[in-house]
């Protein structure tokens, strides 16, 4: 990852598609760019003013057919570019169902990465090769952007909301991780490495000794999975009072909640995804389930981003038949 070259390494399933689009656009641009350059240079020479020239150009006002042609042809080509670019973008926007999930929290000036199995990392992410990885991201302070050039992916980590990105690495190796959104003094030091490993080596690594522990966070014990920590938080924060067991008088049951359609008292509805769960914890009054009273207190400022992700992960694991 550190030798001079003119073209970046291509190491994910999407990077080849992006490069193909890139080469198509370079080719088209070269064609039109050279066309204009050659015409301008040719005419500059061919029609240069010569000694004894009267200095009168031909009287030409325009040509409607030409105007139409050079409006329509570039437009059609532009639409091909649009369609191609949009289809690559759709692939980037939709993680496969079997993607392995990793939580990413950006803060000035580091990346905190959390595997569902429990291991936590800072500025370094180990992933298995040939396995789709879905990143669920947020930020603790300002906007950051998670950028891996070799995978051709980039997504902003925005405070107050979740964003997602996904990739499937195709080559074992070590790749740059950059913060691409300017975030202050150490922006250019908010960098790290993505380490792509063989699946069996990754399994060994995953069950290995933990290297990072952050005492200030909800996840003091970094060997446990976020779901385990979330279960503990669920009890510690008193969520059980209203949300334990069958649908109670106080609050709805959360069993099997994830992915279900929710109907609110004000007539709106939403699918219970990560963003919904996050908002329900931080701003419970904003989406009251039909048939319930707005009595839940806010937990804004009381649970940090990693704790929130753990809590959500726990809620996601609650099966419909539980409780």
């Amino acid at each position: 990852m550190s030798s001079f070259s003119l073209f970046p390494e291509s190491a994910s399933t999407i990077s080849g598609q992006v490069d193909a689009l890139f080469f198509f656009m370079v080719g088209t641009s070269l064609f039109f760019g050279l066309l204009v350059a050659i015409l301008v240079i040719y005419m500059a020479i061919r029609y240069r003013r010569r000694a004894g020239d009267t200095g009168a150009g031909a009287e030409i006002h325009g040509n409607l057919q030409l105007e139409i042609a050079w409006s329509i042809v570039p437009f059609v080509i532009a639409m091909v570019m649009f369609y191609w670019g949009a289809s690559v973008y759709m692939t980037m926007a939709r993680p496969p169902d079997d993607a392995h999930e990793i939580f990413v929290v950006g803060k000035q000036w580091m990346w905190k990465l959390q595997h569902l199995e429990g291991r936590r990392e800072i500025n370094e992410l180990h992933v298995p090769v040939n396995q789709p990885i879905k990143l669920t991201m947020t930020s603790e302070d300002v906007i950051h952007s998670f950028y891996v050039p070799a995978f051709r992916i980039k997504a902003d980590a925005v405070p107050g909301r979740y964003s997602t990105a996904w990739f499937e690495a195709t080559k074992v190796g070590t790749y740059h991780l950059f913060c691409a959104e300017y975030c202050g003094t150490e922006h250019s030091q908010m960098i790290g490495r993505i380490v792509v490993m063989e699946p069996n080596e990754f399994q060994d690594w995953l069950s290995g000794e933990t290297t990072v522990a952050d005492a200030g966070s909800a996840m003091v014990d970094a060997t446990r999975s976020p779901a385990e920590i979330g279960a503990e938080l669920f009890v510690a924060r008193g969520c059980t009072t209203c949300h334990q067991g069958a649908a109670g008088v106080m609050g709805p049951s959360l069993a099997g909640l994830y992915g279900r359609e929710r109907n609110f008292a004000d007539g709106r509805s939403a699918v219970a995804d990560e963003a919904y769960l996050r908002q329900s914890i931080l701003e419970p009054q904003s989406q009251i389930l039909d048939g319930y009273q707005p009595i839940m207190p806010t937990f804004k400022g009381q649970i940090d981003e990693e704790g929130l992700l753990a809590l959500i992960q726990y809620i996601k694991t609650l099966e419909p038949n539980e409780g």
Binding site: A44, R49, A58, S71, F82, Y89
Partner: peptide
């Protein structure tokens, strides 16, 4: 994205017209 591609067309039209303006001119530099 589609609107951004569309806004490129009027700029392209200008470049083509400037190029065509040179045709059969009496050009000095």
């Amino acid at each position: 994205s589609i609107l951004s591609f569309a806004v490129a067309i009027p700029s392209a039209v200008k470049v083509f017209n400037w190029t065509a303006t040179l045709y059969k001119g009496s050009i000095s530099f």
